[in-house]
Design a protein around this nucleic acid. Structure first.
Length: 714
RNA sequence: GGGCGAUUAGCUCAGUUGGUAGAGCAGCGCUUUUACACAGCGAAGGUCGGGGGUUCAAAUCCCUCAUCGCCCACCA
């Protein structure tokens, strides 16, 4: 039993092993590609999607970290100069919302705090939360290079993001626009289109008498902001009115409305006549631009009717709606009211109905940029896994609208600009001084207080994470794989492609691997309100990180959602236990033999076993190469349990205790070498237990499994 | 209104280029045999959503229908 170390006489205990093994790896320095042995030349790079630094990791992060670590570890063993760059995201609006909830609980409000005070508090909170997030990433076994970790508010990142803005401005790709934006009346900020969520709502459709017309609307309270009635130019019913101005009666007086003709009006909907409220509807705003109509703002930033609304001023939208309808009814101006179901945009964080408001904000001109991205993808420069996401990506790129990057929150990167106190024009901060005259209207300029949409900086992340524009690490760019949740196919992926191409002319990654959502065991979305949230760290504590990792990957195809059942993870803990015990058996029966023992003359049966095993190596390696990790894991699992443990070990038992010395040696060699090689191939999935076992296997030198060459054949 | 995905054993899901179905968990029976009861062995369980087509052969390709889910959308 000389081959059997003390450790193996006890059951495997992840809790006492994992932290120790992780330290071993960190101490080795191999997470940093600069420290890898000389055989590692060709770079393999993954940029970690920086987890939000405002809390612990959730189950989805568990899957991300696992998949990326599998790729990184596999490529490192394959001899690549593997770099996986970790990060932490300040997560602008997200974090500010988290912090506002905290303030609310404490009976405080951001609106009663100074900007700097609020910023400092959120920074302190984030720096503290970041530590927990990082500890979670480590607990999952991530072999990322912490020496290169970046935070999205690092000074160098902020400076470069601002520089990109200036470049876009100079290139005419960023501009200050004055138009309707998506306004959240609770959070007091505008939001981009991807930050709103369309929710199906049951409303009423009111048919209101407008002079000779009847218009259908769900928002009668905006009547005071109406400037026109639009009809389709081909609509015969209304031909004689086009171009005329009519007078429309309402509870507070009379409105003069011009009748315009616009293709966008659908003659079949409602009455074919549409009231136009340019200041409070995106569509109406556009029409008003086309027809040079004025805008009357009647709803304020808090969602209340303003002083232009007579007796309704100060009322909230819904209250005013009820009142206005009552009064219109009293005047006999309501023709009918119908039930109406439609989708309304809401704030994705608080579900408050978005109020379109006309505001001066910064926009990125998307069309030329999106074309760069679409061309690159059409040209085959980026491969999507699964490939149907390419279509989704292209649809998105072919249908962009200009991107509002201004946020009225303090937690973010300041937009480096000056804005006019009078005419809403904007200039770069470095081109003028605060207080100097606006180039357009000569009024004094003041500092912009808005911050960037988080995705503006995140979109540049592959470059920023590599220290761009410093050239030191740019040999790792373009990166190989961007692995992230499939929900980011339009929020994040396109922006990275765009900025990568804009800044360097090169796509930021050649492969996009998208995983599905991690749901609860019944396949339902996890949410705090449903109480079905599963913490990856709890599972790690209970079953070990290895069990969680392999359990997350096996049975889950790219792009498809996964149902995370605790029992499944438990099952893979049993697998780890199986490996542990099989190793115990093999080592206690291979006395005097090491991994360096030359191959003895093998029995015919052993040659067969070997041939079968070599076939498995090839198959498993092919799965790894093709990003089919669920199949690689499954095949390893089945080979180890159902072939190696159930058949091979059992078959060898009589030979190990028998008297035929050469038969015994052949059996021992087969057992030890298949065991060791399988452990290597399992390492990317279950790094902790395999590294621990590798340290126990009989070898002369104590090298680490993490840099062991990937096996070819036995 | 569009787009996408799913529909396979009681539950959650695999099944890479077409060749008469698999895993985990649950459940049933037996077994403490030189690792492992966090185990082994054995049995049971599915006409792979319905229908049609291509093929010697389809869960796998094509058409169609149905149901569920997700995403997108400036018909008020």
């Amino acid at each position: 039993m000389s081959n059997l170390p003390e450790k193996l006489t006890k059951p495997y205990d992840p809790a006492s092993t994992e932290a120790r093994i992780y330290q071993l790896w960190e101490k080795s320095g191999f997470f940093n590609p600069d420290n890898l042995p000389a055989r590692h030349q060709e770079p393999f790079t993954i940029i970690m999607p920086p987890p939000n630094a405002n809390g612990r990791l959730h189950a989805g992060h568990g899957l991300t970290i696992t998949l990326e670590d599998i790729m990184t570890r596999y490529q490192r063993m394959q001899g690549k100069k593997a770099l996986w760059v970790p990060g932490a995201d300040h997560a602008g609006f997200e974090t500010q919302v988290v912090y506002e909830k905290k303030l609310e609980k404490e009976g405080r409000s951001r609106f009663k705090m100074g900007r700097q005070e609020l910023y400092n508090e959120i920074m302190a909170f984030t720096i503290d939360s970041k530590k927990h997030m990082e500890a979670d990433v480590k607990a999952l076994g991530a072999s990322c290079d912490w020496s290169r970790e970046k935070f999205t508010l690092d000074a160098s990142v902020v400076a470069e993001v601002q520089e990109t803005f200036r470049n876009l401005y100079r290139d005419g790709l960023v501009y200050r626009g004055y138009r309707t934006v998506n306004w959240c009346t609770k959070h007091q900020t505008s939001l981009s289109d991807v930050e709103t969520e369309n929710v199906e709502k049951a409303d009423k459709l009111y048919y209101i008498k407008y002079g000779p017309f009847i218009v259908a609307t769900v928002r009668p309270e905006t009547i005071f902001g109406d400037v026109a009635v639009a009809v389709n130019p081909t609509d015969e019913r209304y031909q004689q009115f086009i171009g005329q101005t009519i007078e429309v009666q309402h509870p507070e007086g009379v409105l003069p409305l011009v009748i315009i003709a616009d293709e966008e009006v659908d003659p079949a909907f409602g009455t074919g006549a549409l009231k136009i409220t340019p200041a409070h509807d995106h569509n109406d705003f556009r029409m008003a631009e086309t027809h040079h109509l004025s805008r009357i703002e009647v709803i304020d930033q808090y969602g209340k009717l303003n002083e232009k609304c007579g007796k309704y001023s100060g009322m909230k939208i819904l209250e005013a709606r009820t009142k206005v309808v009552e009064d219109l009814q009293a005047l006999g101006l309501i023709e009918k009211i119908e039930d109406y179901a439609h989708a309304v945009p809401t704030c994705y964080k608080c579900s408050t109905t978005i109020e379109p408001r006309v505001m001066p904000q910064w926009f990125v001109k998307m069309e030329p940029l999106a074309k760069l991205a679409a061309d690159a993808v059409r040209g085959g420069n980026i491969k999507f896994i699964p490939d149907n996401f390419e279509k989704i990506f292209l649809y998105w790129m072919d249908n962009t609208m200009d991107w509002n990057i201004s946020r009225q929150i303090v937690w973010g990167i300041p937009i480096p600009a000056l804005v006019c106190t009078s005419c809403n024009a904007g200039t770069l901060d470095i081109d003028h001084k605060v207080g100097s005259a606006c180039p357009t209207c000569s009024a004094p300029l003041t500092s912009e207080t808005d911050t960037f949409d988080t995705w503006f900086s995140s979109g540049q992340w592959p470059l920023l994470a590599l220290g761009y524009p410093k050239t030191k690490d740019l040999s790792f760019y373009p990166t190989n794989v961007m692995e992230t949740g499939r929900d980011l196919i339009f929020k994040w992926i396109p922006r990275m492609v765009i900025f990568g191409l804009y800044l360097t002319g090169k796509v930021p990654f050649s492969t996009v691997y998208l995983h599905g959502m991690v749901n609860d065991k019944h396949g339902k979305k996890m949410s705090k309100s449903k109480g079905n949230v599963v913490s990856p760290i709890e599972l790690t504590d209970k079953y070990g990180a290895d069990a969680l990792r392999i359990g997350l990957v096996i049975g889950n195809t790219p792009g498809n959602d996964i149902a995370l059942a605790e029992d499944k993870i438990k099952g893979y803990k049993h697998f780890c236990n199986k490996i542990w015990n099989a190793t115990r058996f093999v080592l206690s029966n291979t006395e005097g033999m090491s991994l360096y023992t030359p191959r003895p003359v093998l029995e015919k049966r052993d040659e067969e076993i070997l041939a079968e095993f070599n076939t498995a190596i090839t198959s498993i390696t092919t799965h790894y190469e093709n990003y089919r990790f669920h199949l690689a894991g499954e095949e390893l699992y089945h080979y180890f349990w159902n072939t190696f443990a159930d058949i091979i070990i059992e078959e060898m038992k009589p030979r190990l205790s028998g008297t035929g010395e050469s038969s015994k040696q052949s059996a021992q060699w087969i057992l030890l070498n298949i065991l060791a090689t399988t452990i290597k191939m399992l390492h990317p999935f279950i790094p902790f237990i395999t590294e621990e076992l590798w340290g126990i296997l009989p070898r002369a030198e104590k090298s680490l499994l993490i840099v062991e060459p990937w096996p070819k054949s036995l």
